[in-house]
């Protein structure tokens, strides 16, 4: 029983940065921009968040710094693709290279200056301790799985729910969906397309950045690691499809993907706890690393068969809009 509880707990913990990355990318894509630079944005957020937290000992400043840094990266993307009409795929890929390079460069500088890999203070990590919430945390089983996390986990879920409400139930969300689906129609309806795109690219980028900070601080147990993001930005991009562009479904999706990465570490634990599952220990861990991508491929097949228009990629996603184009 404990094995399963621990496993689900770990799945949520591992899924949180994916949830942030996915939510950020959903906001971006819903407004019509395909930003493949999530990996880079997460790297930028990772370094900025870590460094700000390390220097100030404040979690809030760390989170804000990670957001601002990733928004700066997103601003580059927005300026190039919206204002200068550059190709979105190329710009996004370049942003990934730029963002990870920048983060590793400054990360290495930090290591050199500090004379070794820096670590967060005990005081700082205590603020992010995994403690049961009052009342809710006392519920048996559920309390341990859902309500005994570090505060950033709840922040991520709240952000995802707010994003879902924003996209589905607000006027601003309707306008941004219109831009993402048919920019010309939105423009003719009097929406400032460029402004909507800029705002959502920045907003989405900022959310991705928090995901980066989460990885740098929580996943690395408070110590800086130059290669910390390690493809999780890319998994986030795949998760957007898995979640069919809904932040609410992204909560579930990130849990599934988080479970896979939790499984990588815990396969042996499962094998020893349940004799029937002893074969799990025999499977090479590379299989578990591969599983999320395999699942994405399978999901892609099913979503394309279902062919429902509402859960599909926004029609104008990845396409630049220029009003006077003939």
């Amino acid at each position: 029983m404990n094995t399963i509880i621990n496993f689900l707990f770990a799945a949520i913990k591992a899924g949180t940065p994916l949830l942030l990355g996915t939510t950020g990318e959903i906001i971006t894509e819903k407004s019509g921009s395909l930003n493949l630079g999530v990996e880079g944005l997460m790297y930028m957020g990772a370094f900025a968040g870590f460094y700000a937290g390390y220097k100030t000992n404040s979690v809030i400043i760390a989170v804000i710094a990670s957001m601002l840094m990733a928004m700066f990266g997103a601003l580059i993307f927005a300026f190039l693709t919206v204002t200068l009409q550059a190709n979105q795929n190329v710009t996004g890929l370049t942003l990934t290279i730029f963002g990870s390079g920048l983060s590793i460069f400054f990360g290495q500088q930090m290591i050199n200056n500090e004379g070794g890999k820096p670590s967060m203070s005990v005081d700082f990590m205590a603020k992010l301790a995994e403690e049961p919430l009052p009342l809710l945390g006392d519920i048996p089983v559920v309390g341990k799985i859902l309500f005994s996390h570090n505060p950033l986990v709840y922040l991520a879920v709240v952000i995802a729910i707010l994003a879902w409400i924003y996209i589905r139930f607000t006027r601003a969300g309707l306008n941004m969906r219109a831009v993402g689906e048919n920019a010309a129609a939105a423009d003719a309806s009097g929406i400032n397309v460029n402004r909507v795109k800029y705002m959502n690219i920045l907003l989405g980028g900022g959310v991705c950045g928090i995901g980066g900070a989460y990885i740098a601080i929580i996943n690395s147990y408070g110590g800086w690691d130059n290669g910390c993001i390690n493809g999780q930005g890319w998994i986030s991009v795949a998760l957007v499809i898995f979640a069919s562009w809904s932040p609410a479904k992204a909560i579930l999706g990130s849990l599934v993907f988080g479970a896979f990465s939790a499984f990588q570490i815990r396969a042996n634990e499962f094998a020893s706890a349940f004799p029937a599952l002893s074969f799990l220990a025999e499977i090479p861990s590379a299989i578990y690393v591969m599983l999320p991508f395999l699942l994405t491929a399978i999901i892609l097949i099913f979503t394309s068969i279902r062919g429902k228009r509402e859960g599909a990629q926004p029609a104008n996603c990845g396409i630049n809009y220029y009003r006077e184009e003939r």
Partner: peptide
């Protein structure tokens, strides 16, 4: 407009 400016999925 001649080519309707409507969002299909809405």
């Amino acid at each position: 407009h001649q080519h309707f400016k409507l969002v299909d999925v809405l």
